[in-house]
Structures are given as C-alpha cells and as structure tokens.
C-alpha cells in the first residue's frame, strides 16, 4: 500500500507542470493538455543551428523559415469560460551576464559576446492571430526569461471569421487550422562585432489557460 501511495504522489507532483515563467493557472475552465483532451503539439527540427562560415552570411544573416510549428486543440470544461494565453520566452541557461548567450566555446579573443536580443523571431498563421503577426521581433528586454506574447491575455475571443483577431477560446487545429496553428521563423544577422565561437540559447513556448 505504501508503494502504491508513493507512486501515486510522485505521479501527482510530476503532473503539476511548472516553470519560472510558465506559471500555474488559477482557473480550471479548459481541459488540460497532458492528461486531458486538449493538445499542445510542437514540431521542430531538433536544434535550430545557425552556422556562420561565409562573409555573405555575416552580412545578410541566416533565416530558418518554419523551423517550429505549434498546433493547438483546446477543449473547454466549463462552458463559455475557457480562454488561454500563448507566449514564448528566452533562456540562456542562467549564465551571467543575464543578457548574453551561453558560450559553449570561443574561437578567438576579439569581439563582444552575443546578446539575447540578437535573435529575431517571426510568428504567424493563416489568419494572422498572433500579436505582431508576420513581423520579425526581438526579445527587447534583452534578459533571461524575457517574454514575447503570441496570444496575450485578453477577453475571450472564440474562433471568428479569419480576421486577425487574437482567438483564445476553445477550438482545434483539426477543424480550424489557420487559427490554431502557429509557424515560427528564426533569423540572426550577426554583423562583425561578435566574438567567434559557439553559443546556445533555449526558447520556451508556454500555453496556459487564464
């Protein structure tokens, strides 16, 4: 009996997703995406690698288009109450200073370490529902855990005519692909002032009901 209870509690606490920025919601109006019927799916090509080994790349930058795709299916539990928020935030693995990429290795000595606002992201879907849809943006706060809202917290908007509204009600990519799927492009234009080396960051995508 004790083993069963221990297993149960371990399972129960693992189930409580948590992160520095992706905070637990205070409502339970939507079905959850882990054990419930909602879905939060991501397809990506593993690491998004930017390799700058030619001057043309340094000048023009490198863009990885459609590297990440998010697909949502949101079911509601409490009728007419479910709404959600989708955001992304940047993580440098807590290295200091908090505004720089994590350095894996340096190839030289001259130049500056890259800062977090170097990477540009463009989020879009067929109906233009993301905030600043289709525009390259940076993490302007330039610090660890800086946020970019994709679907910000706001009044409940159910799937609408495809008009760019920030839809945040129940729905599914299966029946409404252009409002419940999101494509993310990444771009880096390093210029000439950075120190040669290999660097890394992590970008988190957080879906949470509000």
């Amino acid at each position: 009996m004790r083993n069963i209870l221990t297993t149960f509690f371990l399972f129960f606490f693992l189930y409580q997703t948590d992160a520095q920025v992706c905070l637990n919601p205070v409502t339970s109006n939507c079905a959850d995406a882990i054990m419930g019927t909602s879905e939060f799916l991501m397809t990506t090509s593993g690491n998004v690698d930017f390799v700058f080994d030619d001057m043309r790349d340094f000048i023009t930058g490198i863009t990885h288009s459609g590297s990440t795709m998010l697909r949502l299916r949101i079911d509601e539990v409490v009728p007419n109450s479910c709404r959600w928020r989708l955001m992304m935030y940047i993580d440098n693995n807590s290295v200091l200073p908090a505004n720089e990429w994590e350095t894996l290795v340096n190839y030289g000595t001259s130049g500056q370490n890259p800062e977090l606002d170097l990477i540009e992201v463009k989020i879009y879907n067929g109906c233009g529902t993301p905030l600043n849809s289709g525009v390259f943006q940076i993490f302007a706060g330039n610090t660890q855990y800086d946020l970019l809202e994709i679907i910000p917290m706001g009044p409940r908007i159910v799937p609408a005519p495809c008009d760019g509204s920030q839809v945040n009600g129940p729905g599914s990519y299966l029946t409404d692909y252009n409002e419940y799927s999101f494509t993310i492009d990444y771009r880096i234009k390093p210029g000439y002032i950075l120190k040669p080396g290999a660097y890394q960051i992590k970008i988190h995508f957080c879906l949470v009901e509000v």
Binding site: Y15, T17, A19, C22, N24, P25, T27, S28, C30, A31, D32, A33, I34, M35, G36, S38, F40, M42, T44, N47, V48, D49, F50, V51, F52, D53, D54, M55, S67, T68, L70, I74, V77, C82, W84, D91, W101, L104, Y107, P114, L118, Y186, I188, P190, L194, K195, P196, G197, A198, Y199, Q200, I201, K202, I203, H204, F205, C206, L207, V208, E209
Partner: peptide
Amino acid sequence: GLSFGQLIDEKNVTVTMDLQPVLQ
C-alpha cells in the same frame, strides 16, 4: 488532478549559433 485539470503545457527549442572567424 483529472477532473479539474488545468490547461498548462510547455515546449522548448534549443538554438545554437556557430560564429566561425572568417577572413577573406
């Protein structure tokens, strides 16, 4: 946990940047 589960989930992507010294 099951009947009143809350909608929260997180995914992540690792981005690496390799800046090679180029002198032409």
